[in-house]
């Protein structure tokens, strides 16, 4: 693992926390199916006069989708952000890596 250089300012901390991911997942899990179902109601029922969209099957499908999306989204965000697991299997031995782009090379 590299040691921080005291001469450089500490990088800003990323603000994402599990509670944020939970709120976002609940918000999108409710908002996206509501938007899609609402849009279909407008197109099918209000514009075309088709009542099938008001039946129990589309409503149940939207509710199931919402529940699954909330769980999937929260677990996925937590996993992507390294929040799940202890991380103990990760090792960070320091290596010298030469990156190809000039902009990434340290000043000498």
């Amino acid at each position: 693992m590299s040691m921080p250089d005291p001469a450089e300012p500490a990088p800003a901390t990323f603000g994402g926390r599990p509670r944020h991911y939970l709120r976002i997942s609940i918000g999108l899990g409710l908002g996206l199916p509501a938007y899609l179902y609402g849009g279909m109601v407008v197109i099918e029922y209000l514009i075309r006069g088709e009542a099938w969209i008001l039946g129990w099957k589309p409503v149940v499908a939207a509710i199931v989708f919402a529940a699954l999306y909330m769980r999937l989204s929260y677990r996925w965000m937590m996993d992507l952000d390294g929040q799940l697991g202890s991380g103990s299997r990760w090792s960070l031995p320091e290596r010298i890596v030469r990156l190809p782009e000039r902009g990434h090379r340290p000043e000498v």
Binding site: S2, M3, F14, G82, Q83, H104, P106
Partner: peptide, 15 residues
């Protein structure tokens, strides 16, 4: 990015 989130101050990971 996972490694960086676990070790946000690591200069090598930031690079």
């Amino acid at each position: 990015f996972k490694a960086w989130r676990r070790n946000p101050g690591d200069r090598g990971l930031i690079a």
